[in-house]
Computed example of a mutant assay.
Amino acid sequence: MHSYLVTVVAALAAAAIALVVVEVVHRLTRRWGRRSLLLTELTEHAHRSFQVAATVLAVQFAVRFSTGYAVGSQWRQALLHLLVLAVIAATAWLVASLLVVIEDTALARFRVDVPDNRHARRVRTQVVMLRRVTVVVIVVLTVGVMLMTFPAVRGIGAGVLTSAGVVGVVAALAAQSLLGNVFAGLQLAFSDAVRLDDVVVVEGEWGRIEELTLSYVVVQIWDDRRLILPTSYFTSTPFQNWTRTEAAVLGTAEFEVDWSIPVQAMREELRRLVEGTELWDGRVCVLQVTDATGGMIKVRALVSAGNAGALWDLRCLVREHLVAWVRDHRPTAMPRLRTEVGNGTGELPWQWVQPRRSGRRTADSEVPDDARLFGGSDDGDARSEAFVGPDEQPTDSRR
Rank of each mutant, 00 (worst) to 15 (best):
A171N: 07
L147S: 07
G157V: 15
P151F: 08
L188R: 01
L39N: 01
L214M: 05
D381C: 10
T67Q: 10
Q126A: 15
R271H: 14
V114N: 05
D224F: 11
A382V: 04
G342R: 01
L19P: 02
V114P: 00
V135S: 07
D313A: 10
L19F: 07
A58D: 00
A184R: 04
N307H: 07
G359F: 03
G389R: 04
D258K: 03
V63F: 02
L94V: 08
V63D: 02
A305K: 03
G204Y: 07
V22T: 08
H321Q: 15
V20E: 08
E385V: 09
V140Y: 07
W222N: 06
A108I: 10
V199K: 02
A253D: 02
V137D: 07
W93N: 14
V199R: 04
T149A: 08
S97W: 01
V101K: 01
H2E: 14
T339W: 15
G68D: 06
R383N: 15
D258Y: 08
I228D: 05
F387G: 08
S49I: 03
G251N: 06
R34K: 14
L212C: 02
V167R: 15
Q60A: 10
A92R: 01
T125K: 00
E254P: 05
E278A: 11
T362H: 03
R121T: 13
R35F: 15
V169T: 08
M129H: 13
V135G: 11
